[in-house]
Computed example of a mutant assay.
Amino acid sequence: MKLKIAVPSKGRISNPSINILEKAGLGLKYNNNRKLVSKTHNENIDIMFARASDIPEFVSDGIVDMGISGIDLIKESESEVIELTDLNFGKTRLVLASPEDSKINSINDVTSEMTIATEFPTLTKKYFKNHSLEPKIVKLSGSTEIAPFIGVADLITDLTSTGTTLKMNHLKIIDTILESTIVLITNKESFENKKPLVEAVSSSVKGVIDAVGKKLIMMNVKSKDLDAVRKLMPSMEGPTVSEVLSKEKTVAIQAVVDEEEVFELVNNLRKAGAKDILVVPIERII
């Protein structure tokens, strides 16, 4: 049983996608996007590099079993896929924007006589249909921001993370059409017929995501100080306590904690009697 996973060959989500797969244990043997396919350290799993916009359809059509893509591209292509895991990066919004000196300040100011420029005609058309509007939709392949200023369109719909680029181009956001993030996807046939491999990849990737911002703290504590130390320990399930073979009555404690808690926690633990404190990175939490 072979499994093929499609990842973007270039662009803003390519390297983060590859990094997550490698942290999940699927190291690429040929990490070169000039190659169409790369084997991994698992002989049953290959990685295929593709254009980000093609990946939802490749997964939906069964050309590949799994893929990494944005919700915006999935919805735009109307691909039938199963979303497995949110990869927790690449958050963006598809927004409706007008020139900052325009009198168009909300969807209520838009009429069907207006023209909209976009790279997402399907999502844009659906959005306006939901508002009982049928403006002319002009599909552009790039530089959408300039469309209102060269007479191509009255408004645009475009992706933005912070809105800075739109503001720099003298555009104002008047509505949000869709919020998007990067997700791991599969198709129904692969999910059913290759379930063990699909679930293994999905759980490993989710383990990487869950480990972000987490640290493992380990320490030795004298038995008399155990209660004081244990009260300080935040943890997923409560700290793990085990006996240390030593002359003194000592126990070892370990727990998973949030990274932002580490500085204050370590100092409080030391004051409570903990010693030999180790803070260790976590690659995955399964």
Rank of each mutant, 00 (worst) to 15 (best):
K247F: 14
K215T: 09
D154L: 00
L166M: 03
R12I: 14
A117Q: 01
K247G: 15
T118K: 00
I104G: 01
N130T: 08
R34A: 11
G207V: 03
L216Y: 04
D46N: 12
M1G: 14
S143R: 13
N187G: 04
L87K: 05
D61R: 12
N33S: 15
K136L: 05
S180W: 07
V262C: 09
S9P: 08
L140H: 05
A255V: 14
A200L: 12
S98Q: 03
N19T: 12
G142A: 02
D258E: 11
K125Q: 13
S38F: 01
R93F: 13
K222R: 14
L184F: 03
D54S: 12
V205P: 06
I13M: 08
V201E: 02
L133H: 01
T122Y: 12
V198S: 07
S223R: 15
D276W: 12
M114P: 08
P99C: 02
E113M: 09
K29E: 13
G67N: 04
V201L: 05
T165F: 11
I55P: 01
F263D: 14
V59Y: 06
K35M: 10
I156F: 00
D72E: 15
V229E: 07
L123S: 05
K195N: 14
V262H: 08
D101H: 11
A52S: 13
M218L: 13
I282V: 09
N15P: 11
K215M: 13
K188L: 12
P121G: 06
M66E: 04
T157Q: 00
G62D: 10
L265R: 02
I74H: 05
I18P: 01
D54K: 09
D65L: 10
T40G: 05
K247T: 15
A52H: 10
K23L: 04
V152C: 07
D154I: 00
K2Q: 14
G163D: 01
D72M: 10
I277P: 11
D258S: 11
L155C: 03
N187F: 04
F263C: 09
E248P: 10
K75V: 09
S202P: 09
H131L: 01
D65G: 08
S77A: 15
N193D: 14
R12W: 12
I182T: 10
N42Q: 11
L155A: 02
E199D: 15
G70F: 04
S235D: 06
A6D: 02
V138R: 04
S53V: 13
N33F: 12
N42V: 10
K247A: 14
K39V: 08
L226E: 09
D54I: 06
L245V: 15
V205N: 02
P196L: 03
K215E: 13
E80F: 11
V229Q: 07
E134Y: 04
I82M: 11
K129L: 12
I63W: 05
I253E: 06
